[in-house]
Design a protein around this nucleic acid. Structure first.
Lengths: 224, 224
DNA sequence: ACCTGAACACCGTTCAAGT
DNA sequence: ACCTGAACACCGTTCAAGT
């Protein structure tokens, strides 16, 4: 049934031509299934039904693949248009980043630890700039606020994703370890420190953020 | 001059017995010199003048080495005693974490992205708990504030270290790329977005943090 | 222009054997 | 108890050769 002379007695090979987009999509899927550490150029190639070396026709190297996946992740954060309520908009931005992170936890961990370095989060940056502008901040202040906001969200999500994905030794174990600390204040707080409620903690953080923005002084950021 | 029968005509071998601490110290140094990606068990072994397989007598695997280095990093953040000015103390904590991060930028990047998962930052957590307690917060609120604070600092430092260490393509290049974006608000802010002043940005973030804490409502955190 | 086999210079980790 | 040689099952990437 198959055309003459396949290279071996293998299954049919791909029918369409390879593309960067296809590679990145496969990489995202693989990372999400098996973790970043398990991703290799050879496995990635196998996933798109090709030999490892063919990948190098479309991406510079493995690092470029990871950068590409990072971009892919941020492009999947689709932001709604701004309203006239900057508080609500800021909450929405935060919630949406978190929701997307939870949708692809492993890819998100990768992306968030690489974000700063690339311009992957540009759409999110734009949305945040708009929000702070509407809240009455000048350009300079808005940029600073965007940066602080993103750093806060990044740090929060990296922590949450990390704790969610790893050693789920339960609260009892953590509490016991903390109780046997030699720092008194840690012992006092052991039970509270041992408990996680990521929903509540995220909400607490967002409230703090709103509080800070609320009380930040508006400057007329008239740039040169 | 050397004792009889060295295994080859090599230089003298180590005279004292290997230890976990020695391995971690060497790992920290190697990571700081060549980057995490360049660290291998074989190179690490060579650095302590031993064969790779000997390491496994003292550490479970490579991951345990990285965890150990993370702990080593956090243990080098030495915190001063609290004063009666919580604002100043919080500023000091932030500045000290930043200073230590800059002292070992590559190790810090590793440690900060792993922190959440371990209990490495326990001393810092204790110090922060103390600060918020003195600022009038109950136990529950203090724990939440510590977490938000650490997430903010972590996110900020990961970004700063990442940008400091990589592709230093200059401001002009970044500005040009941003100017040619198809998002209007990004174009407007391009010049500001293209410029980094990490000192100033960190200060801005800390000020925001103080503002938030300042206006957070004190609750009597009487736990069950 | 794109794909591939073979090769190079590495990896982390296991295991059985040494002292 | 600690160290090690050899081996296993992998890596990322280059290069010359194919179509």
């Amino acid at each position: 049934m198959r055309p003459r002379a396949p290279r071996t007695s293998q299954a049919p090979r791909r029918d369409h031509t390879l593309s960067r987009a296809e590679i990145l999509a496969a990489a995202l899927e693989l990372i999400e299934r098996d973790g970043v550490d398990a991703l290799s150029m050879r496995k990635l190639a196998a996933a798109v039904d090709v030999e490892a070396m063919s990948l190098y026709n479309h991406v510079a190297n493995k690092d470029a693949v990871l950068d590409g996946v990072t971009g892919e992740f941020f492009s999947r954060i689709t932001l709604p248009p701004a309203t006239d309520d900057w508080r609500a908009d800021l909450r929405t931005l935060a919630a949406l980043m978190r929701a997307t992170a939870h949708q692809y936890p492993r890819v998100a961990t990768l992306a968030l630890t690489r974000e700063a370095v690339s311009d992957a989060g540009l759409a999110a940056t734009a949305a945040a700039l708009d929000i702070f502008g509407r809240a009455g901040f000048g350009l300079e202040d808005s940029v600073q606020l965007v940066r602080s906001t993103m750093c806060f969200l990044t740090g929060t999500l990296i922590r949450e994703l990390g704790l969610t994905q790893t050693r789920r030794d339960d609260r009892q174990v953590r509490a016991h370890r903390l109780h046997s600390s030699d720092i008194p204040i840690i012992v006092d707080a052991a039970d509270t420190l041992a408990a996680f409620d990521f929903e509540k903690e995220f909400e607490f953080g967002v409230r703090l953020l709103l509080l800070a923005v609320e009380h930040a002084t508006r400057t007329d950021g008239v740039a040169s």
